[in-house]
Lab assay of single mutants.
Amino acid sequence: DNLVIALHSYEPSHDGDLGFEKGEQLRILEQSGEWWKAQSLTTGQEGFIPFNFVAKA
């Protein structure tokens, strides 16, 4: 599955970004460039995340 774990917390800075906490698990929905579309397994919310803040779970 496309699961990743957050290496750092991220505060959203643009509409459509997904904020998350360090250690949170996310499911990657789309990989494109440096911003990936993801869904939080904690909150169920979707949005874009910086790819370098996460690692394969």
Rank of each mutant, 00 (worst) to 15 (best):
E11K: 14
Q45F: 09
F51K: 15
D17Y: 15
L3C: 07
L41A: 05
E11T: 15
V54Q: 03
Q45G: 07
L41G: 02
K22M: 09
I49L: 04
A38P: 00
K56W: 15
A38K: 00
H8I: 11
Q31G: 08
N2I: 14
V4D: 01
W35S: 07
E34H: 14
G47H: 01
K56T: 12
T43C: 04
H8A: 12
A57F: 14
G33Q: 04
D15H: 11
Y10C: 06
P50T: 08
F20D: 00
S9E: 05
H8W: 14
S40K: 11
K56M: 13
L18Y: 04
A55T: 13
N2F: 15
S9I: 04
V4H: 08
D17R: 10
H8M: 14
K22R: 10
D17W: 14
F48W: 15
E30T: 10
A38F: 04
G23L: 03
Q25E: 09
R27T: 05
A57L: 15
E46W: 12
E34T: 13
G44E: 04
L29E: 01
G33D: 04
E11G: 07
E21G: 08
L29M: 07
E34G: 10
K22D: 03
E24D: 11
E11I: 15
Q39L: 11
L26M: 08
E24C: 06
I49E: 02
S40G: 01
P50L: 07
K37T: 07
H14Q: 12
D17T: 11
G33M: 04
P50K: 06
N52P: 04
G44A: 05
K22S: 06
H14E: 08
L26Y: 02
H14N: 12
Q45C: 10
L7F: 06
G23C: 08
L3N: 04
P12S: 14
S32R: 13
G33L: 03
T43D: 05
W35T: 07
G19V: 05
V4N: 00
P50S: 04
L41E: 04
A57V: 14
G44L: 09
S40I: 05
Q31V: 08
S32K: 13
L41C: 12
S32P: 03
F48Y: 14
P12M: 06
V54C: 09
R27P: 00
E46G: 03
G23D: 06
D15C: 13
V54T: 03
